[in-house]
Nucleic acid binder design. Structure first.
Lengths: 208, 208, 208, 208
DNA sequence: TATGAATGAGATTTCATTCAT
DNA sequence: TATGAATGAAATCTCATTCAT
């Protein structure tokens, strides 16, 4: 009994993953807006109706991929958290990891960014959870930094967490949208901007 | 002759403005995604096809409104630039003005934000110009700050400009998307976040 | 062995009845077209596929219920046949009973009517039988009327049977579809129409 | 000006007619239920969206064809009304014309019948009008018959009209659904049934 | 028998954009 | 320029029916 339902569960997950995988590939080829359900159906050899059995709308598919992206991002952060580093250095590494993630997984980061910039997109509980998990990890580390006296005394760790996340998203977005322009016109590389940002950011964070 | 073409030019501008005005009103009611060309046609008493004589696509309408928004934003920044303040304080005031702008002109800020977050949206020369004007004002002030020795010596004024803009957009976006949640769950107000951000940011900027 | 198969048979019948009962209830709530197999499955706690083990199509379910309806209708007619009445008066009572049935059992009459109006719907042997049983009872009485000299001599009892059935269905259908309108616009009640119909009909039937 | 809008109007009507014509042909091939919008689009070389520009649903197409059918039927009745006949004979001819119409225009009569049997189908004003026109013609003649003393004195002309229409529809429906069966099993032709019906009906109508 | 996931046809809707006049 | 009908892609939804387990 249990075995059967477990298998079914697994198959169901597989099917969902097939759909997500297909959606991902399509978007990799055609961009976020190049996704369409007919194509997913064709690529998965599923009937269009079946897609709607697993996801109630195209947006839900995007939402699921966003969760996936956030989880991957979290995984990177968790790795860093496990390193033998001062909390404050972990946070620096987290920003760097975020940047690397954005460079390596363009699509995933586009999704993360999409949801960070759009209040119109609905977030399910799962999505909220995945977002929360990231914030919580960061805030955990922020509190540790505070305890270790690495944080400016006037800076509330929660505020700090939100600011870290907000500014990082903003910087990466800027690089995504204007990076090429900045490089060509101003002759500044993405890395230089990132370095300056880190410098500025942690300068402001430090205990005086 | 000239007179005629001038009048025509003026009428053309008027027509364009009517369309933009209508689009704006519609979005104020229904949000960015609530805009549709049929509605514009109806509200302006123009035929749908006529809209396309003035704008080559719906996106171009959004682009034009974005230019408008950026210009308004610039105007606020210019006001600040004219104040009798230290450069560094001007920059602080600029961030605050940006926040106020976002609170007062939700739609306009949504547009600004939309283009800051989307690399897929095409920017015309005019759009680029309006974006540039802002950056240039900020960078001008940044250079002044540098000259006055208000800036950390390691911090390049151009880097600083990009960072200021990127982080500010990021923070405002975060407030837009998660502000309500943060207020209710974490009991932190938007103003508190903004204050902490300013504190952190200018702490990091200051000459040591 | 026999016992077992009997039980199975009984269970099978029960299952069938459960399905029919559920379908009936759904249609009572939502009308003939409000019936859908998912709902039946839910209401019977059966899997959708299981429904198809008992009925080869949704139409077959409708067909079965129609048989049920026809049998009930026949029962009413049989009651009348057993009364101590002249054949011709039995026939009049049968039309009245038909009207009453239509008033009391809206759904059932809708089903009867559905099959009287649709040549596209397939009738199984059982369905044909149930339809036949009615016609045969009526024709039996028609022949008795003929023998008793109650029928116009030019009127063939079989013709008469078909006409009685056809016109009665037509009148009831008209009342179903336009009854409300007729009442409100023309100020004629269903009963008045029925009375006039009976009057006209049996006037035409009578021996001259 | 007027000319232009007139032409447009005519084109619009043509387009509507093209769609209706195509729908009709499809149904002639595949039956009432064989109609589908994709096929209409293909046969008219119109985009599916265009179909929905002219008709808000498939049902509306059916409704329009029903109006067309009713108008054709009315035309036949009007012809008869113009004949030099006693009112009562006109009514007899109307029933016969109805039968002929049903034999000649199976599809059209199916549509008429569909709406006579289904209370669930919505009728627009136009549909109601077309239905009304028929009833009014018949009732006009019925009143003339009354005046000429051709009608049984107890018979209200309005009641009579409804009864004529209801019973005729019922008889034709029966022939449509069971005609073949009756012919093969009972060896009675449609014409015989119709004759008997007319005989019975007008026997009951006559002034005593 | 029983299950319920999968199918696939089709209706409907929405809209940005194009095009003939 | 102005018009608005036409386009066509795509999303969404509904459901009867089938099929592998």
């Amino acid at each position: 009994m249990k075995r059967t339902s477990e298998r079914k569960e697994r198959e169901k997950e597989n099917r969902k993953n097939d759909i997500l995988k297909a959606a991902e590939n399509i978007m990799k080829k055609n961009g976020l807006h190049g996704l369409n359900v007919d194509q997913i159906a064709e690529d998965t050899s599923l009937a269009k109706g079946t897609i709607y059995l697993y996801f109630k709308s195209k947006e839900e598919i995007l939402g699921n991929l966003t969760v996936k992206a956030r989880k991957l991002l979290l995984k990177e952060f968790v790795k860093i958290d496990k390193m033998d580093l001062n909390p404050i250095d972990k946070l620096r590494e987290i920003i760097i990891a975020n940047y690397k993630f954005y460079r390596k997984n363009t699509l995933y980061y586009d999704l993360v960014s999409l949801y960070e910039a759009n209040h119109t997109l609905e977030e399910t509980d799962e999505m909220y959870g995945s977002s929360n998990a990231i914030t919580e990890l960061v805030s955990k580390i922020a509190f540790e930094a505070k305890e270790k006296g690495e944080l400016n005394e006037n800076l509330d760790p929660l505020h700090f967490t939100m600011i870290l996340w907000g500014t990082t998203v903003g910087i990466l977005q800027m690089l995504k949208v204007r990076g090429a322009l900045i490089e060509s016109k101003l002759n500044i590389t993405e890395n230089q901007i990132l370095d300056s940002f880190l410098e500025l950011f942690f300068q402001g964070v430090k205990k005086k």
